[in-house]
Amino acid sequence: MQTKPTALKILDVVSLILLGISTYLALFFAPTEAVMGDVQRVFYFHIGTAWVGLLGFVIAAVAGIVYLITKDMRWDRFEVAAVEVSTVFFFITIVLGSIWARPAWNTWWTWDPRLTTAAITELIYIAYFMLRQGIEDPEKRARFGAVYTLLGGLSAPLTFMVIRLFRTIHPVVIGNASAAAEGGFSMTPDMRTAFFFALFAFTVIFVDMIWHRLRLGALEEKVEQLKLNTSL
């Protein structure tokens, strides 16, 4: 039985503390935004989760390429961990965004480039899990997963660009999130503190989660090996 490494235990505690501080900063420390009111406080976690979500997808694409070159299963586990954690964080981003959009834009959803790209990116990574589930051979699963994350990572920015074409011609309530867009605002120094702290906190939480998932992946592999050995 492998026990949890001490460093990971410490990181767990640090993550929790940072999440607590970040919550405090977002909910109490940062000043209330003049126009949108308290609902704007969702912004800090919205950006925090979006940042680690995107970070994870980029990491996954890179890990995929490294796997294809080295054929080392550890990179595959790393890729799965990044995609899995990021998919959850990205889903949280979309939900938080909707909560913010309802009062700020007067709608839960709009087909703005960011929102559409986010939705399609989620679908790509859900397809990724379905693909992996359909393949028994772990080595083939890893190869296909790597190629698919790469395709997904390349097509997402193109999706963003193509949706923007639709939107420049059919203007809707909300343009892209430039400063001029509705719901835009400028940050006061206190807001900025809360904002950057949230980014930092979520990055640490992300690392913690990935570490857990990597450990889980290694244990999973061990169980699979043991099962194979007993059945032989």
Binding site: I120, I124, G152, S155, L158, T159, M161, F166
Partner: peptide, 8 residues
Amino acid sequence: PIAIPVLL
């Protein structure tokens, strides 16, 4: 989902 950019 991958072909969305080319289709759109």
